[in-house]
Design a protein around this nucleic acid. Sequence first.
DNA 1: TTTCATATTTGTAATCATTACAGATTAATA
DNA 2: TATTAATCTGTAATGATTACAAATATGAAA
Lengths: 145, 145
Amino acid sequence: MITNMKHIKKELTDKNIKPTYQRLCILEYLHDNLVHPTVDMIYNKLVDRIPTMSKTTVYNTLKIFSENNIVNEITITGTETRYDTNCKSHQHFLCKKCKKIYDINITYQDSEIINKDIFGHKVQEIHGYFKGICKQCLENDKIKD
Amino acid sequence: MITNMKHIKKELTDKNIKPTYQRLCILEYLHDNLVHPTVDMIYNKLVDRIPTMSKTTVYNTLKIFSENNIVNEITITGTETRYDTNCKSHQHFLCKKCKKIYDINITYQDSEIINKDIFGHKVQEIHGYFKGICKQCLENDKIKD
DNA sequence: TTTCATATTTGTAATCATTACAGATTAATA
DNA sequence: TATTAATCTGTAATGATTACAAATATGAAA
């Protein structure tokens, strides 16, 4: 338990979300595991501590969190949604080989775009991502040669 | 048939992809319908002309196209993959209300990033997208008020 | 042209993430 | 405590995608 529980509780009550035990645990997990986890990863970890935990609860909770901008949904892989609580604006890099998602901190001119119009559309979220081969995989390949 | 068939055929042979009738029809459809279609949209349109067309063929073909950079896979919605042959670098805007995907042409400094390293990772694709409420939906809401 | 090997297409069944739903449980209020 | 609403849970349904094997088409060699 790295993240302070009171802090997490406040994050929910501030948004008028009832801080149930399940919700607190899920949010705590997200804060402590900034690895863009899947629903399965979250569920499998928490079911140890809360044996009655249901996967549906994980889905429901993440939906509420997403609607309240507590987490971002990352759909980069195309197979399953990943979840991210890193609130600082950042991009993602998906390695096509090992499928790991890296955070990329390239400063964007968010403030110039967010909540303003682009061709008349109201922008609420900005997502940027890159795909390629990650450093680790490049090095592994080098060794094989 | 807006796009020239010979042109399409060349696009495939240039990449050593056998230009079968099914593949030509799918690529032609993609060129003529830059609406980020789903597999279902492609299949349902083409099955009229090719009654034996199988949805699996559409999947197989799009996979080959994607691997050869003939189409881009757009996973913005999180529910199904959309396909795009617009080769000019551009971003996408997903309307959270009507689910339509718009092309957004904000010039990026692609050339500065593509095929170069970002923190040691080799970047092969750049994707950028925005989510929000589109112009049309904003106007529809205005009328209701 | 015929034969053979290979690539492609097809249809069905399986998989897997996600959602729908309804009953059980918990919390909140009077 | 009784009542009501919110939340949680487990199962079943959905829907996109993939696996797979049989059918078909293609292309080369004889």
